Amino acid sequence: VFVDDHLLEKVLELNAKGEKRLIKTWSRRSTIVPEMVGHTIAVYNGKQHVPVYITENMVGHKLGEFAP
């Protein structure tokens, strides 16, 4: 499973602090992992960042699938 390192670091850091804030990313190719559930990730679609709230059903899919 591929997840960009910088994105995973941000998610794990927020989980350690117990925070839930918006994470901006250009990494549409990253796979959604269970650690991301409950976070809102702003995924770049080529024009703007689209906020995507991550749920359990999204695990295993790519971030780009949810930012048309």
Rank of each mutant, 00 (worst) to 15 (best):
R29M: 11
Q48N: 13
T31G: 13
V43L: 07
E13D: 07
F2K: 04
R21S: 13
V33E: 02
Y44D: 04
K10N: 10
I54G: 00
H61I: 10
N15W: 01
K20D: 04
G38I: 01
H61L: 10
I32M: 05
K20L: 09
P68W: 09
K47A: 13
D5M: 15
H39P: 00
L12R: 15
H61G: 09
S30K: 02
F2R: 04
I23Q: 01
G46S: 08
I54V: 08
K20G: 01
L14E: 02
I41T: 01
V3Q: 04
G38K: 10
V11E: 00
K47M: 11
M58C: 09
S27K: 05
G46R: 10
L63K: 00
E19L: 11
V59C: 13
A67E: 04
Y53N: 14
A67Y: 03
E56R: 12
V43G: 01
I41S: 00
V52K: 06
K17H: 08
S27W: 05
K10D: 06
K62F: 09
I32N: 00
L7M: 03
I54H: 00
K24W: 15
P34Y: 13
K10F: 07
E35C: 11
Y53E: 10
V50L: 12
E65T: 10
G18W: 02
A16P: 01
H39F: 08
R29P: 09
P51C: 06
L63S: 02
K24I: 13
V37S: 10
Q48T: 14
T31P: 03
G64P: 00
K47R: 13
E19Q: 11
T55F: 11
E13F: 08
E19T: 07
V1D: 14
V33R: 04
P68G: 07
E9Y: 09
V3P: 03
D4L: 02
F66P: 02
G18A: 05
I23T: 02
K47I: 15
T25K: 01
N57G: 11
T55S: 14
G38D: 12
E19A: 06
I41M: 05
T40D: 07
E19D: 07
P34V: 15
E56S: 14
S30T: 06
R21H: 15
H49N: 04
N45V: 05
V59S: 08
Y44K: 04
W26S: 13
V59I: 14
T40L: 09
P68R: 08
D4R: 01
H49D: 03
G18T: 03
K17P: 01
V37T: 13
P68S: 08
E19V: 11
E56P: 12
F2Q: 06
Q48F: 13
A67R: 03
V1Y: 07
L12G: 04
R28A: 06
E13H: 08
G64A: 10
M58W: 05
F66V: 07
M58I: 14
W26P: 06
V52M: 06
T31A: 13
P34I: 13
E56N: 15
V37N: 10
F2Y: 13
W26I: 07
G60N: 14
L63C: 03
H61R: 12
N45F: 07
E35K: 04
P34M: 15
I23D: 01
Y53K: 11
L14C: 05
V59D: 04
D4W: 03
V52L: 11
Y44V: 04
S30Y: 03
E9N: 14
R29S: 09
T40W: 07
G64I: 07
R28V: 06
G64F: 09
P34D: 10
T25P: 01
V59A: 09
H61T: 10
G18M: 05
R21W: 09
F66L: 09
E35I: 15
R28E: 03
V52A: 06
K20V: 07
V1H: 14
N45I: 05
A16Y: 07
K47L: 12
A16S: 12
V43T: 06
H39Y: 03
V33L: 13
V59Q: 12
G64C: 10
G18F: 05
I32S: 00
E65W: 08
S30D: 01
K62P: 08
I41N: 00
H49Q: 03
I32Y: 00
V37D: 05
I23M: 04
D5Y: 15
K24C: 13
I23L: 09
M36A: 03
G18N: 08
N15G: 02
P51G: 06
D4T: 03
R29G: 10
E19Y: 06
Q48Y: 13
G64R: 09
V37A: 08
E65S: 13
Q48W: 13
T31H: 15
H61V: 09
L22Y: 06
L7C: 02
L7K: 00
M58F: 09
T25E: 00
V50R: 10
K10C: 13
T55K: 13
L8D: 01
N15V: 03
E13Y: 08
Y44G: 03
L8K: 04
V33C: 09
H61F: 15
K17V: 08
N45P: 02
L63A: 01
V33K: 04
L63I: 06
I41Y: 01
T25L: 01
K62N: 10
K10L: 15
V59M: 10
K47T: 14
H39C: 02
H49L: 06
A42D: 05
T55N: 08
A67S: 14
V3C: 06
K10Q: 15
T31S: 11
V1F: 10
A67P: 04
H61Y: 11
S27P: 01
Y44C: 07
A67W: 02
H6A: 14
Y44S: 05
A16D: 06
V43A: 03
Q48I: 13
E19F: 06
H39W: 06
L22H: 05
N57K: 13
V3M: 04
R21F: 11
H61W: 12
E65L: 11
H49G: 05
V50M: 09
T31W: 08
A67F: 03
K47C: 12
I41H: 00
M36F: 15
V59K: 13
E19C: 10
E35N: 05
V11T: 02
L7Q: 00
H49R: 02
V11Y: 01
G38C: 07
G64T: 05
T31Q: 12
D4K: 02
K24P: 07
I32C: 08
L14M: 13
A16E: 09
E13S: 09
K24E: 08
I54C: 10
H49V: 02
E9V: 08
H6E: 14
K17M: 08
A42F: 03
V52Y: 04
T25I: 01
S30P: 03
K47H: 13
D4Q: 04
V59L: 12
S27M: 06
L8Y: 12
M58S: 09
M58K: 15
E19R: 05
L12D: 04
H49A: 03
E35F: 08
V1E: 13
E56Q: 12
H49S: 04
G18V: 02
L63N: 03
I23N: 01
K20W: 07
E65P: 05
G46M: 12
E13M: 08
E9P: 01
K47S: 10
A67I: 06
R28N: 05
G18P: 01
N15R: 02
I54A: 04
R29D: 09
E35D: 10
N15E: 03
P51H: 05
R28D: 04
